[in-house]
Amino acid sequence: MIEEVTLTIDDVLVKAVKGISVLDAAVKSGICIPHLCHVPFLSDIGACRLCIVENVNNGKAKITTSCTLRVQEGMVIRANSEKVLKLRKNIAELLVAHAPNSRAIQDIAVRCGLKEVRYPFHNANCVLCGRCVRYCSEMWQGNAIGFVGRGKDRHVEYPFGKRPDTCKKCNSCVLYCPMSVTPCGEVMKTGEEHLCGKCDSQMAMAEKIPGACVWCETGKSFQCARYA
């Protein structure tokens, strides 16, 4: 017997199977919560922080990631409040300023309503979302790649930098990498990075209906939980 709970997300009553995450519950109900490190069938680590929501308890709102938050009966969630939208936009700004050469990240930035980047661009080739690492260890028990180092030195690497025998060459690490889809047009050269901002219609929707799923192209090509 599947147990269901009822919770409120953005003033809408949502029924969800007990045990699933708030992110899954919202996305299944057509409420958009942008996310990057979450992949429907992998564990959630709460690394990208894009999917933050306000969990309102006794009148107090606490910011937390919805991918790691389990649904509970009577829960009140604000997934697209003014505060959440602002914070989410700032996180998207950090991401796109760090790694602009990804269509997924550029699209997420648009979806979060980002129009201007206030930092000098870096041209990093990894945002440490850990999709590859989790796919490798959780789907294949490959443990061929992992997060190595800490702080600014954290990166994804093979043990001792050499591909181990446990790697099954399944290529999932590439398929699931948000950096593997380059922006529309050309790859941005160092010094020429910019916010793509070509999708006027996307931007208009991000401004008018930030909380509604619009079956965006990002989601389709990028394993959004809505398409799962």
């Binding site: 680590i45 709460g46 690394a47 990208c48 922080r49 894009l50 996180i91 950090l94 991401l95 300023a97 760090h98 945002v127 440490l128 997060f147 180092g149 800490r150 702080g151 600014k152 030195d153 954290r154």
Partner: peptide, 11 residues
Amino acid sequence: ESCGKCVPCRL
């Protein structure tokens, strides 16, 4: 000293 796991702290 940050572990580097989450975006706001690292970036």
